[in-house]
């Protein structure tokens, strides 16, 4: 019985992230539109877009290889797995032994690898530009993300998300400047990785500035739907990571009675709502930076992560 309910909870999480991801994207777009005094599309528009794209015919360039067709599914699958491992409404789930921070970094890394390959596959110049920029950003964002992972694992003595959350949930964690630095670092990395505004603009097709859009320019139909869905899932994944690790309020633990799970789900949806509104406000308030300033931006994230580790070492005498 316990086994069945464990499977059930894990399955609910997998479906929940799938169901909520387009909604988060829709809310962010709606908030941005309202702040610009536009009416904006309904928050359900991303679902309609995905449905429309799936129904449409996929046009594929003549010289596309099998990789071009396989990449969207691989990207979607890797991101989905990562998102279902992330902390959402309950910790200590069925597959929490696999929910390792480094595993999530690796899953996202492989998704990006296939995306850049697909961008290069057709041989158009846009795809090439997009891929090269994406790799430049990734080569800085990934070390920063690993620094975040190392800091959290130093604190929790484990890289498993469920034990990290146990530590941040307990009152023993206290006031830690390292955690604050890691939070800022993780937010900066999340902005860069999700192609949000200071680094990339998700709503533009201007060749000078686009990174993510340049890589997926050749895609259409169901392939594009998979990639867009993957991007939405990635945004949701980062929001769940930040919300789960740094604001572990209301999360159900394994073995809790059923109502705790519903409370956790409500808290999770509330956290996502706050995250989406904050992202929309932030993106409206800030201007996009030049591509060549991105290394400074992400260098800041890397530095914060490194500094957090150093400060943690200093206070270890007290731990």
């Amino acid at each position: 019985m316990a086994l069945i309910s464990d499977y059930l909870v894990q399955g609910v999480q997998m479906l929940l992230v799938l169901a909520l991801a387009p909604l988060v994207t829709g809310v962010v777009r709606k908030v941005k539109a309202r702040l610009l005094r536009r009416r904006g599309a309904s928050v359900w528009q991303p679902y309609r877009d995905l449905l429309r794209l799936i129904r449409k015919e996929a046009v594929i360039a003549e010289n596309a290889s099998w990789l071009f067709r396989a990449a969207p599914y691989l990207i979607f699958a890797a991101t989905w797995v990562a998102a279902s491992l992330a902390p959402t409404f309950a910790s200590g789930l069925m597959f929490s032994w696999a929910a390792d921070l480094i595993a999530i970094v690796a899953l996202l890394g492989s998704a990006r690898f296939f995306q850049t390959l697909a961008g290069l596959d057709i041989g158009t110049s846009f795809g090439g530009i997009g891929s090269s920029r994406e790799v430049m950003i990734a080569s800085l964002a990934e070390p920063a993300l690993l620094m975040v992972a190392f800091t959290l694992s130093l604190l929790a003595h484990s890289t498993q998300l469920s034990s990290i959350i146990e530590v941040t949930q307990s009152p023993a964690v206290g006031l830690r400047i390292s955690l604050a630095m890691v939070l800022v670092s993780l937010v900066l990395v999340a902005l860069a990785e999700n192609a949000r505004i200071p680094v990339d603009n998700p709503a533009t097709h201007l060749e000078l500035t686009m990174v993510h859009e340049a890589m997926v320019l050749e895609y259409s139909g169901r392939h594009l739907a998979m990639i867009e869905f993957g991007a939405a899932l990635k945004l949701l994944l980062y929001m769940s990571l930040i919300g789960g690790i740094f604001v572990p309020v209301g999360m159900a633990r394994s073995g809790d009675p059923w109502p705790a799970y519903f409370v956790g789900m409500g808290a999770y949806v509330a956290k996502l709502g706050v995250g989406a509104v904050a992202l929309g406000v932030f993106e409206t308030a800030i201007a996009k930076m030049r591509v060549f300033r991105v290394p400074e931006f992400l260098g800041g994230a890397l530095m914060l992560g490194f500094l957090a580790i150093l400060l943690l070492f200093v206070s270890r005498g007290h731990l």
């Binding site: 006031l175 400047i177 390292s178 630095m181 500094l307």
Partner: peptide
């Protein structure tokens, strides 16, 4: 107590952080 230490740690760590902010400007 632990809180005393944590706040002192926080503030002196912040000083190092603001130093980096200054180098960044």
């Amino acid at each position: 107590s632990s809180l005393d230490f944590d706040v002192a740690h926080l503030l002196s760590g912040l000083m190092v952080l603001v130093c980096f902010l200054m180098l960044y400007q």
